[in-house]
Design a protein around this nucleic acid. Structure first.
Length: 570
RNA sequence: CGGGAUGUAGCCUAGUGGCUAAGGCGCCUGCUUUGGGAGCAGGAGAUCGGAGGUUCGAAUCCUCUCAUCCCGACCA
C-alpha cells in the first residue's frame, strides 16, 4: 500500500477533546475518527487492526470448536418481551416500527436471537453441546459514551453462546472459554485481572469479568492483594468494622433541616457510620426501601439479587410524588399509612451491617425528625436482611482479613453461566436419552472489539506513538527510501511490487525524519530502508521500531527475511 | 439524568466592544532538500457552532438553542 494513496493522515497536535493517551494516538495516527457522540469510524489502518484482532479471537473460538454465524442486528421487540428483557434492558434499547408496523429493536446483545436460531435448528440432545459465535454490531443507548472507543453506543462484539445437555457440561466448558480469553488478552499485551462480575441485564447465574486496570475505566474492582480475591465493586463482599454497645432507649431528635448524610453528621456531631440512609427503588409495580449505613451506598446489583427482582431502579421524581414520599424524609420505621394503603407492594430490605449495629440514627417519615438509638429488631423490622451495600475501600477481605483495595478498571470481556433462563423462557426444549424433556444449559461470552483495540492502544504505547503487540500492527513493515536517486526508486518499486501488502510504502517526498516519526506514531514495528549508502553493497536495511541498530539484508534475501518475520508474506 | 467546561480554516491556538479576524501545523504550486517532524518563494482555505437581542459598531455583552468533552448517576 502506498502511503500517498492511504486514506489517513497523521497529525502532530492532539485533538482538543481527547484525554486518554491511547485514544489520542489512535486519532493522531489516523486509525479512527469520531462521527458523533459515541460513534466512531474506522479508517483503513484502524480497520486492519480490527481485522487482526478479530482473526486472533476467531482462531481461539475455532479451537473451542466454535462455529461462526451471523445474526441480524435488528430483532423483533416481541422476542425481547418473551424473556422479560424488553423492560429490564429498556434503557439500552432503541427501536423503530418497520414497514409492516411491527416493533423492532437494535440488539444490544444476542441471547434471544441466538436461542431462536438454535431452537429452529437443534432438534436432538445429541447435537449438544453446540458453541456458536459471531462478530456482530451491538447498539446500546448509552447515556454517556466516553473515552473514545472505550465506551461507544455502537460497537462490534465477539459474542459466543454455548448450549449444553447439563450444568456439568457447561461447567466443564466454561473454564475452557476462560482460558481462551486469557490467551487473547495476553496476546494483546494487556495487563488484566479476572473478577467475579455483576450480571446486570444479562441475568443468569454467575459471571466472570476480564478487567484492565486503568483510570480511564468506569468500572471498579475490589481486590485483595494477599489472597487474590477480586470482584466487581457492585458485588464485592468484605467485612467492615462495626461499633458495639448495649442498646440505648429510643429517642426522637430534631434534625434542623438537615437531610443529606453530610448535613446530618454535622447536626448530630457524629460520623456517617452512625447514620443510616434509606433509598427508594422501584420496578414499576413494587417499591423497595433499601436501608444501608450512612457511609455506604446501596448496590442495586446486590439488591436485585437479594430480592430476585431484576430491573430495579432509583424511584424517580414522578414515582416519589405519586407515592407521596419525600426523599429527604423517609425511613423504615412507621411507614406512612397512606403508602401502605396504596395498591403497591412495599418491601423493606435492611443491609446486614445496619441490622447488626446498635444505636443508629434513622430518619423518620416526617420532615425534621430523626430517631436516635435505633436498634434493628427492637425498633423496626424488615422483610429481608441481606448484604445490599457496596463495600467501602477500608473494608477487610472476607477470606484473609487483609485490607481490600479499590481500582478503576476497563471491562474487556465477560463470561456468563446463564443456566436455563433464556432456553426456558423461549421454550427451547429437547428430550434427553431417557425421554425426559429439558431446557439446555446456556453460557454466553463476550468481548468488545473496539474497546479491545482501545485497550491495546492504552497498554501499548510510548512517547513516540503506538507500539502494537506482535501480529496486530496494521502493517508489519514500513518501506521507505532515502534520497531520490533512480536506483533507490527502482529497488523501492520492485520490493513494493513483490511484497505488496506486507508493506506500507511511504512514497512521499518527505524527509526521512518525518517518515520515521509517522512510522513510530502508527506503530509499524519494522522499517525497511533503501538508501544509496548501503545499496552500493547490494543491501537494504531493517530497523526495528524503538531501536537504532540497523540490520543490513541483501536485496536478494529481503523476501526470505520478510517471510521469517511475518510467518509468510501476507 | 444531575454538575462542570469548551465551540474561531482539516488540526492546535491568539484575539474579551472599534481598521480588512492573527499565528503555527497541515494542504496546493515551484525550486531546493532527505539517517529522527528541513529551507525559500508564492497560494488557497473562516457565514468566528446556530438563532435572536443590546449597540453607531459584536468573535467579544445578553437570551435561547445546538454540538462536543469531562465528573457523577445509570449500564455492558
Amino acid at each position: 500500500m502506498r502511503y500517498s494513496r492511504l486514506l489517513s493522515h497523521t497529525t502532530r497536535d492532539y485533538p482538543r477533546s481527547v484525554r486518554s493517551a491511547g485514544h489520542a494516538l489512535l486519532q493522531r495516527g489516523g486509525f479512527i475518527r469520531p462521527l458523533s457522540q459515541g460513534l466512531y469510524s474506522f479508517l483503513p489502518l484502524g480497520l486492519r487492526v480490527v481485522s487482526r484482532v478479530t482473526e486472533l479471537i476467531r482462531r481461539e473460538m475455532l479451537a473451542l470448536e466454535g462455529q461462526e454465524v451471523l445474526l441480524p442486528l435488528v430483532n423483533p421487540l416481541e422476542l425481547w418481551r418473551s424473556t422479560g428483557r424488553a423492560e429490564i434492558a429498556a434503557r439500552d434499547l432503541v427501536g423503530f416500527r418497520d414497514a409492516s408496523g411491527r416493533d423492532m429493536v437494535l440488539a444490544p446483545t444476542h441471547e434471544e436471537a441466538m436461542v431462536a436460531l438454535v431452537k429452529s435448528v437443534v432438534t436432538s440432545y445429541r447435537q449438544l453441546p453446540v458453541f456458536l459465535f459471531q462478530f456482530q454490531t451491538k447498539y446500546r443507548n448509552e447515556t454517556r459514551p466516553r473515552g473514545g472507543l472505550l465506551r461507544t453506543r455502537e460497537f462490534v462484539m465477539n459474542d459466543g453462546y454455548s448450549f449444553h445437555r447439563s450444568a456439568t457440561d457447561l461447567n466443564n466448558f466454561y473454564p475452557r472459554v476462560f482460558a481462551a480469553y486469557e490467551r487473547i488478552f495476553d496476546a494483546c499485551r494487556i495487563p488484566f485481572v479476572t473478577a467475579e462480575a455483576a450480571v446486570g441485564m444479562m441475568l443468569g447465574d454467575r459471571s466472570m469479568e476480564f478487567l484492565m486496570p486503568s483510570d480511564a475505566g468506569d468500572d471498579r474492582v475490589i481486590r485483595c492483594e494477599k489472597c487474590g480475591y477480586a470482584a466487581n465493586a457492585e458485588v464485592a463482599v468484605g467485612t467492615l468494622s462495626r461499633p458495639v454497645g448495649d442498646p440505648q432507649p429510643l429517642t426522637t431528635v430534631p434534625s434542623h433541616g438537615a437531610a443529606t448524610m453530610g448535613e446530618l453528621a454535622a447536626v448530630f456531631e457524629c460520623g456517617r457510620d452512625a447514620l443510616t440512609k434509606t433509598m427508594v427503588y422501584s420496578n414499576g409495580d413494587e417499591l423497595v426501601l433499601a436501608v444501608v449505613r450512612g457511609d455506604q451506598e446501596v448496590s442495586s446489583e446486590k439488591l436485585e439479587r437479594a430480592l430476585g427482582t431484576p430491573g430495579l431502579h432509583f424511584a424517580n421524581r414522578e414515582e416519589l410524588a405519586f407515592y407521596g414520599i419525600d426523599p429527604r424524609a423517609v425511613g423504615p420505621i412507621d411507614l406512612p399509612l397512606d403508602l401502605l394503603e396504596l395498591d403497591v407492594t412495599v418491601r423493606v430490605v435492611v443491609d446486614d451491617v445496619v441490622a447488626n449495629t446498635p444505636n443508629l440514627i434513622v430518619s423518620s417519615n416526617e420532615s425534621g425528625i430523626h430517631f436516635a438509638n435505633v436498634n434493628f429488631g427492637r425498633d423496626f423490622e424488615s422483610d429481608l436482611v441481606h448484604d445490599i451495600a457496596r463495600i467501602l475501600p477500608g473494608a477487610r477481605c472476607a477470606n484473609c482479613a487483609s485490607e481490600l483495595v479499590e481500582q478503576r478498571v476497563v471491562e474487556l470481556g465477560n463470561i456468563f453461566k446463564l443456566g436455563d433462563y433464556y432456553t426456558r423462557r423461549l421454550r427451547l426444549t429437547l428430550s434427553d436419552a431417557k425421554g425426559r424433556r429439558f431446557h439446555p444449559q446456556m453460557g454466553a461470552y463476550g468481548i468488545g472489539i473496539g474497546r479491545l483495540v482501545a485497550a491495546i492502544a492504552e497498554s501499548n504505547h510510548d512517547r513516540r506513538g503506538l507500539d502494537w503487540p506482535p501480529g496486530l500492527a496494521p502493517y508489519p513493515f514500513l518501506l521507505m527510501g532515502i534520497g531520490r536517486s533512480p536506483k533507490v526508486a527502482g529497488v523501492l518499486e520492485a520490493l513494493h511490487g513483490e511484497l505488496g501488502d506486507a508493506f506500507l510504502y511511504d512514497d512521499r517526498r518527505e524527509s526521512i525524519s518525518t517518515k520515521f516519526r509517522d512510522a513510530d506514531l502508527m506503530g509499524i514495528p519494522m522499517r525497511l530502508i533503501v538508501s544509496p549508502r548501503t545499496l552500493e553493497q547490494g543491501k537494504v536495511e531493517l530497523l526495528e521500531r524503538g531501536s537504532t541498530k540497523v540490520r543490513p539484508v541483501s536485496v536478494a534475501h529481503v523476501r526470505t527475511a520478510v517471510s521469517e518475520m511475518t510467518g509468510g508474506p501476507k
